[in-house]
């Protein structure tokens, strides 16, 4: 899959495959994923849990730990630099300054034995080249930017003294302190309650306007997609099955799986019964032949069972790709 519009592309991932080699066999967590992110946009990576979203992000930063995880193939180009060709000791230049990551579990993503101030300051020192008092001042400033009240005092707090929402703000502050070219937010709101979720999302939207950063937003929440994203990439069983802009997703999605998950919200809005996709997500150790979605697909034909579909460019301009033999979009 090649996107025709190559200008302004800051990050491109090509044919990325990552597997976990367990005693029971190989788990293909990410299987040939390709996408590009344009400068300043927010691309949402959407899929159910276990579809490979997080592993995709960790692979981009080469944070998959061997054993058991291993990046099998692929290429990640960040602002002209081929990340996988760098020696491991130079990865510290890509991590942070290049791509920073907000993890999905704020409760355990901070070091319990360091103050939150120290942890933000460390990111400032590594990535902004500041030292000592200057870095501390910057760290306190970052606390203010993520709307933490009385930042000078909070600087000395330990993670266990903060609530979940506060910790997630700290995670955001750490990621922003890296001044990344691309900010990866891995379900930053999934373990928070609804009101805090709304606060964090609003904060991220405001910050996006203020500092104009490129975001790869990983989520399984379509409501968040509608609010945050410019474009959307849908993942299923480790593969990218559809990529399009957010309006196309809601109006004219082409993959039966995408249609299925969109149906699960639109049907409810109209007061009908909840549309569900029948069957279960596939076992990543025993993937079906042909199209990975065919056992659950109501439009399944013979060819779907045997032949894996390639990508089809539906828009003709490279903006809407789908991996399906029989795309459903209205022409």
């Amino acid at each position: 899959m090649e996107e025709t519009k190559t200008k302004d592309i800051i990050l491109s991932v090509k044919d990325l495959s990552t597997s976990f080699f367990l005693r029971e066999g190989e788990v293909k967590a990410v299987d040939g994923v390709s996408f590009s992110v344009r400068k300043g946009e927010c691309l949402a990576l959407v899929g159910e849990s276990g579809s490979g979203k997080t592993v995709t992000a960790l692979s981009m930063l080469r944070l998959v730990v061997w054993p058991p995880g291993k990046i099998k193939s692929g290429e990640v180009i960040l602002d002209g630099v081929s990340v996988f060709d760098l020696p491991m000791k130079n990865m510290k230049d890509v991590r942070g300054k290049g791509m920073a990551m907000i993890l999905q579990e704020p409760m355990s993503s901070l070091n319990p034995s360091q103050t939150i101030g120290q942890q933000i300051q460390e990111a400032v020192e590594i990535n902004q080249g500041l030292k000592g008092e200057e870095a501390k001042k910057k760290a306190i400033e970052m606390l203010g930017i993520v709307r933490i009240p009385s930042p000078e005092k909070r600087y000395y707090n330990y993670p266990h003294e903060l609530s979940g929402g506060m910790k997630q703000r700290i995670m955001i502050a750490i990621a922003l302190s890296c001044r990344p070219k691309v900010l990866i937010a891995d379900e930053p709101t999934c373990s928070l309650d609804v009101t805090i979720q709304a606060q964090i999302l609003r904060l991220m939207q405001q910050l996006r306007k203020e500092i104009d950063t490129t975001i790869l937003f990983i989520t399984s929440d379509l409501g968040i997609v509608a609010e945050m994203a410019d474009r959307v990439a849908i993942m299923y069983a480790g593969q990218l099955i559809e990529i399009c802009d957010v309006f196309t997703l809601f109006e004219n999605s082409a993959h039966p799986y995408t249609k299925g998950i969109m149906g699960s919200i639109t049907a409810m809005k109209e007061g009908g019964r909840l549309n569900i996709i029948s069957g279960d997500p596939p076992d990543l150790m025993a993937l079906p032949s042909g199209c990975k979605f065919h056992p659950r697909c109501e439009y399944c034909q013979e060819i779907c069972k045997t032949e894996e579909p390639g990508y089809t460019d539906l828009s003709g301009t490279g903006d809407h790709w789908v991996r399906c033999h029989f795309p459903l979009n209205k022409k």
Binding site: L58, L61, L63, K92, D93, R95, G96, K97, M99, A100, M101, L103, E105, S108, S109, L110, N111, P112, S113, Q114, Q119, E122, A123, I126, N127, M171, I174, A175, S177, C178
Partner: peptide, 26 residues
């Protein structure tokens, strides 16, 4: 295996610092 180690690595902390500045105290 802790998530805070991923956080540390993701902000560009070196492996030596991950071991001795972050994990050792814990």
């Amino acid at each position: 295996n802790g998530l805070y180690v991923i956080t540390a690595r993701a902000k560009g902390v070196t492996e030596t610092a991950v071991l001795f500045k972050h994990a050792l105290k814990n």
